[in-house]
């Protein structure tokens, strides 16, 4: 069961990364101002968290999707926005990058969760 939950986490992470690149590629075009592209990319990317939240409520929780999703979509959205504006990477090149970022962020959050998990010393509340 634990393995299945982890699998769901990683599938959702990858979905959010790929969806954020896709959303950004629909709007941002080459030749855009870099800073505008970065902020628009970040904003559009973060929208990808909402479908993930909706589709996953039957199998996981918002607490597992939100922290990871916000980071993944923010980073991939920003990178996708800038890369497309500069013409540095094509959308098909950005998807593997988004998958890599998603898996890395998910792994980092899992490690951090393991560190925080357990009894909190009293008086820290």
């Amino acid at each position: 069961m634990r393995f299945l939950f982890k699998l769901v986490d990683y599938i959702l992470a990858v979905f959010m990364g790929v969806a954020s690149v896709w959303l950004v590629s629909l709007v941002v075009g080459s030749g855009w101002n870099m800073f505008i592209a970065m902020f628009v990319g970040m904003f559009l990317g973060m929208l990808a968290v909402f479908p993930a939240l909706l589709f996953s409520c039957g199998v996981t929780t918002a607490f597992h999707v939100l922290p990871v999703g916000m980071l993944i979509t923010m980073f991939t959205g920003m990178i996708a926005g800038m890369a497309i504006a500069m013409g540095a990477l094509s959308t098909s090149q950005l998807y593997p990058l988004a998958i890599f970022i998603a898996a890395t962020v998910q792994l980092a959050i899992d490690r951090y969760d393991m560190k925080l998990k357990g009894e909190v010393p009293l008086g820290r509340t």
């Binding site: 959050i109 925080l116 909190v120």
Partner: peptide
């Protein structure tokens, strides 16, 4: 009086 506090997911679910 708080006698025990346990993190079960990050520090968001306790």
């Amino acid at each position: 009086r708080l006698t025990e506090e346990v993190n079960i997911h990050l520090d968001m679910v306790k």
